[in-house]
């Protein structure tokens, strides 16, 4: 478990490092996500070497972002002034996204 966590953090550090050095306009942790995918795909590392830590992190992913949700409290007044517009925009946009994605895959997908 600790060893697999070391792998995860190695890719995180590498992602942050490359972002800084190459001035990539994406967050370092997202660069790290790319790198670990390609490292697995090209068999540079084994799935079993990283899976214990990654499964645990994803199992508790929602716990890690609750504090950000709570932080919304500090912006209560800003949100309150525009909540109706926000609600309309978010719902309409979500329905468009759901439909477009589904209809394209339903027309051209192979797996039913």
């Amino acid at each position: 478990m600790v060893k697999s966590l070391l792998y995860i953090f190695s890719f995180l550090v590498l992602g942050e490092f490359l972002k800084e050095v190459l001035h990539i306009p994406i967050a370092g942790n997202i660069v790290g996500m790319f790198l670990i995918f390609f490292a697995l795909k090209f068999k540079l590392i084994k799935l079993s070497a990283v899976k214990p830590a990654s499964d645990k992190l994803l199992k508790y992913l929602v716990l890690f972002f609750i504090p950000y949700g709570v932080g919304l409290l500090a912006y209560y007044q800003l949100i309150q002034a525009f909540w109706a517009y926000i609600a309309i925009a978010v719902v309409v946009s979500a329905v468009i996204t759901l439909y477009l994605t589904a209809i394209i895959l339903q027309k051209f997908g192979k797996n039913g």
Partner: peptide
């Protein structure tokens, strides 16, 4: 680290 785990 959770974002990196999404790659896995």
């Amino acid at each position: 680290p959770s974002i990196v785990a999404l790659g896995v």
